[in-house]
Amino acid sequence: MQLFYGHKDGNSAALTADESKHAIKVLRKSAGDIIHVMDGAGNLYSGPISNDHQKHCTIRIEEEVNDWNPVPYQFHLAIAPTKHMDRLEWLIEKAVEIGITRITPLLSFHSERKVLKLERLEKILLSACKQSLKGTLPQLDPLTKFTDFIVEKRPDPTYIGYCGEGEKKLLVSELMTNGPSACVIIGPEGDFSADEFSMATSAGVVPITLGDQRLRTETAGLTAVQAANLIHQLKSH
């Protein structure tokens, strides 16, 4: 199935300008061709192209599916962006393909990237969502201060990865016990500061380890996402 992105408008679905150009100019779709349009909110629309304008392509809706292909659990990754954007982009693409519902970029004491433009990340997120046939676009938050994130209302349970000393629980074991719906916080390449870690644990965040390996930030984030997905698969079969 080849997916396009747009929104419902009465009995029609309208593609965005970029999606219209891709469908009509690049893929050479024309009036009468059947295509599928997702709105990013869990709805899928199918039908023939009624207007094959390369900036304003629309279809006549013949079939509508609601609650289409949602991620069947709520997984929230809060992570400090890497210094090199290509590594963060890779993480977002793969996390969406595997299954995630929310991503919060964090600004912490040791963060090397202190400015983040979301426009390109949103395009990568949408592309990965279409490629992996996910019906709902994950929420992508603006860059958020670590201290602000800790004091806001978070899902329960929330875990934090930390390389310093102290007792930690194995994330896979925690997800197996409590289920894959969770929030996992991953720090920058210099890790969280001792004060940040103390603030998080004082707020009830559970310290975790991902295993014996030493992982880069983006690898740690993806490991957590994949752990939740595997736990869901095990529990649902």
Rank of each mutant, 00 (worst) to 15 (best):
F4N: 10
N11A: 04
S12H: 15
A13E: 08
A14W: 15
T16C: 08
A17V: 12
D18V: 14
E19M: 06
E19H: 05
E19G: 06
S20H: 08
L27A: 07
G32Y: 12
G32H: 12
G32T: 03
I35Q: 10
I35C: 08
I35D: 08
V37H: 08
A41Y: 02
A41P: 09
G42H: 06
S46Q: 14
G47D: 10
P48A: 06
K55S: 06
V65H: 02
N66G: 15
N66Y: 07
D67P: 04
P72W: 03
P72E: 02
F75D: 00
L77Y: 00
I79Q: 05
A80M: 06
A80D: 09
H84P: 00
M85D: 10
D86H: 12
L88W: 01
L88R: 04
L88E: 01
W90S: 05
W90H: 04
W90D: 02
K94D: 03
K94S: 00
K94C: 02
V96N: 01
R102D: 04
R102K: 15
L106H: 12
L106W: 15
S108C: 15
H110V: 06
V115S: 11
L118Y: 07
R120L: 01
L121C: 10
L121R: 12
L125Q: 11
L126S: 11
S127H: 08
A128M: 02
A128I: 01
L133Q: 11
T136E: 05
D141L: 03
L143N: 05
T147K: 11
D148V: 07
D148Q: 05
K153N: 05
K153G: 05
P155F: 00
P155S: 13
G161V: 01
C163S: 10
E165A: 10
K168F: 10
K169W: 07
L170Y: 08
V172C: 02
V172N: 04
N178M: 07
N178Y: 02
C183N: 10
C183F: 15
I185H: 13
P188A: 11
E189Y: 15
G190I: 08
F192P: 01
S193N: 05
A194M: 12
E196K: 02
E196T: 09
F197R: 02
S202R: 14
A203S: 11
V205F: 05
V205D: 06
V206P: 01
P207I: 06
L215R: 12
L215G: 05
L215E: 03
T217K: 05
E218V: 09
T219W: 15
G221V: 11
T223Q: 02
A224H: 03
A227N: 04
A228C: 03
Q233C: 08
S236H: 06
H237C: 06
